[in-house]
Simulated scan of single mutants.
Amino acid sequence: MKVTQGQFSFLPDLTDDQIRQQAQYAIDKGWAVSVEYTDDPHPRNTYWEMWGHPMFDNPDAAAAVFEVNECRKAHGSKYIRVIAFDASPGWESIRMCFIVNRPAQEPGFRLVRQEGEGRVVRYTIESYAVREPEGARYV
C-alpha cells in the first residue's frame, strides 16, 4: 500500500530534477524549504523529525536536493518529505508538502474498532509499522 500524503502522492515518485523544480517554485514564491523524515507516517502525525535547518534565505533549489540526498543517506529506509513554509502574515503555515522517499515495503494501516458504553463505537487508524519499536521499523 502506498501512503498518499501531501501533493503529488498519486503520481509516481519524483526524480531529483522534479524535486529541484518544485523546491525552486517554492523558493521563487518566498517560502522556506525544509526536509523532514519519520518512520510513522500516520495521517495525523504532523510532527516529523527535521533534517538540518529550514532554508529561509536559500536562493537555489540545488541545496534542497542536496539535503534530501544527505537525509536519504542517513534515513533511506524511512519516509522523507519536503515542505515549503510561507511565513508571510496571514498564512504562516505550510503551503506545499510532498514525499520524496519511501521505505521499500509500506505495510499500510488498519482500522481499530473500540466499543464504548451503550451503542458508542469509535474507530481509529493505526499503522502496521507501529507494531515495531521506533528505530526498528522498515529495517
Rank of each mutant, 00 (worst) to 15 (best):
H53W: 03
D60H: 15
G118C: 06
C97V: 09
Q105R: 03
V82F: 06
T46M: 04
T46K: 12
A62P: 02
A62W: 00
D57Q: 13
A104Y: 08
S88G: 10
E67N: 04
E115K: 07
K73Y: 02
P103Q: 08
G76E: 11
A64E: 01
G90R: 07
D86H: 03
R113M: 14
G118S: 09
G90C: 11
P107V: 11
Q114N: 14
I99D: 02
Y47P: 00
E67S: 04
M50G: 11
P107W: 04
H75V: 06
C71Y: 08
F66P: 04
F109A: 05
V82T: 01
L111N: 15
P107G: 00
W91L: 09
P89T: 07
R119G: 12
R102E: 00
S88D: 12
F85R: 00
E67G: 00
A61M: 00
P54S: 10
W51P: 00
V120C: 03
W51H: 02
K73Q: 09
R72P: 05
V68D: 10
A104W: 06
A104L: 14
E106Y: 06
E70L: 11
R110L: 01
S93V: 14
N69R: 14
A84D: 03
A63D: 13
P54C: 07
A64F: 03
R119M: 05
E115M: 05
Y79Q: 04
G118L: 10
V82M: 05
M55K: 12
F109L: 08
L111G: 15
A61H: 04
R95A: 12
R110S: 13
I80G: 09
P103M: 14
I83R: 11
P89L: 06
A63M: 09
V120F: 09
C71W: 04
P103R: 06
P89G: 12
E115T: 07
Y79D: 01
P89R: 07
A63C: 05
Q114K: 13
S88I: 08
R110V: 10
F109W: 07
R81I: 01
N58W: 12
V65P: 01
N69T: 03
F56V: 14
A74T: 04
A87H: 09
P103K: 10
G108T: 02
S77L: 05
R44H: 13
P107C: 02
P54T: 10
F98N: 03
F85A: 00
R113V: 11
R110F: 10
S93Q: 15
Q105Y: 00
M55D: 05
M96D: 11
A74S: 09
F98A: 09
F85M: 01
K73L: 06
S93C: 13
D57V: 02
M50T: 15
F66V: 10
N58R: 12
